[in-house]
């Protein structure tokens, strides 16, 4: 086909130069269209390939343990008993802590940079936040292990335990760790370091979308006597909610999937402690630790955990889309 086209091209060229250029534009369009389509399809094919591989690889584990694999807290390579529960909850709890700390922080940074900071301070702070995003995760892990965890254990942990430990129910989350002793290596420290890691991503995305709010909208609100807070909450946020949710999802995705830094500071304990100050593990950390030397059922179980992680990420994405749809719906409703 291409040869006949090329032949046709040559013919056209000899007859009329203007026609040739039109034709080559058309050909360029076709080529471009198919190239773009191909790239888009590659993503879909990759995704399909990953799903097929994960499902196929995890079948033996689900056959051996049934759906109980998800809720079992056993991880015993000697007796070949595996369950995903401690890693699964560890992943979710660490990500939740990271969001609880990271979201207000990122929001505050974005509001400060776009609405409050004097002009000379905007650029340095903005650049600093972006630079933080470029730090490799292993650096955060090493900083967490060598500096933050010992600092946390010495100065913050005792206070936390004394203040929150005696509270009913809630207090069980802040008991002195049984395992790990005075190390400061725990699910909570991992969550805090994760929060620091995702702040640059969320803050810079939220800042960028805040900046696209038309000045006239904000000026009108200010002119009507709105405070900065009211402007941010009632004008900026509704205008940018899609972008903000996107930024949050980016951070959450990173918190759920982060591997290296978490492996350093979460303590890699396969048992589930009741306190946030106990060491734990996450799915990603577990995979990074055990994949190398695993075989047989252990390998199948690790792949099954990979599938679970995939499903979690999928659910998170779906929930964010649903949330956006509902937000859009309520806004439509309020307008009419």
């Amino acid at each position: 086909m291409s040869s006949t086209q090329a032949g046709a091209l040559n013919e056209v060229k000899s007859v009329a130069p203007i026609n040739r250029s039109k034709l080559s534009f058309a050909l360029g369009d076709v080529v471009f269209k198919f190239t773009a389509l191909f790239f888009a399809l590659v993503v879909l094919m990759l995704l399909a390939g990953i799903i097929v591989m994960l499902v196929k690889g995890s079948l033996p584990a689900f056959e051996a343990f049934g759906p109980g694999f998800i809720t079992s807290d056993e991880w015993d390579p000697v007796r070949e008993l595996y369950g995903a529960w401690p890693s699964l909850t560890g992943t979710l709890v660490a990500a939740l802590i990271a969001m609880l700390i990271g979201l207000p922080l990122s929001f505050g940074i974005a509001v400060f940079i776009t609405e409050m900071a004097p002009q000379w301070l905007k650029r340095p702070v903005g650049t600093a936040v972006e630079l933080l995003a470029a730090v490799p995760s292993i650096i955060y892990g090493m900083w967490g292990l060598f500096f933050f965890a010992p600092f946390f254990a010495a100065y913050i942990q005792p206070g936390l335990v004394a203040a929150l430990g005696p509270l009913p129910i809630f207090g069980t989350l802040f008991q002195m760790p049984v395992m790990g002793g005075s190390s400061g290596v725990s699910v909570l420290t991992a969550g805090i370091v994760l929060a620091i890691m995702i702040v640059p991503f969320m803050a810079s995305v939220i800042r960028d979308v805040f900046e696209i709010v038309p000045g006239s909208l904000k000026e009108s609100a200010y002119a009507m006597g709105a405070t900065t807070w009211e402007v941010v909450w009632n004008v900026v946020l509704p205008f940018t909610k899609t972008g903000v949710v996107g930024g949050i999802m980016l951070g959450l995705g990173r918190a759920i999937g982060e591997t290296m830094a978490v492996t350093f500071i979460i303590g890699n304990a396969s048992q589930l402690g009741s306190s946030l100050l106990d060491p734990g593990t996450t799915i990603a950390a577990k995979l990074a630790n055990e994949f190398n030397e695993a075989d047989g059922l252990q390998m199948d179980s690790l792949i099954a955990m990979g599938l679970i992680l995939f499903v979690i990420t999928f659910i998170v994405l779906m929930l964010s889309k649903l949330m956006l749809m509902r937000l859009a719906a309520t806004q439509e409703g309020s307008k009419t």
Binding site: P77, M179, S183, G267, N268, A269, A288, E290
Partner: peptide
């Protein structure tokens, strides 16, 4: 790999060594 009754897990000799040195 076994089901350890207690303890922190370090990745590799260097992981264990850094825990021991740090804590």
């Amino acid at each position: 790999a076994v089901k350890w009754p207690v303890g922190l897990g370090g990745k590799g000799n260097e992981g264990v060594a850094s825990y021991v040195k740090q804590i």
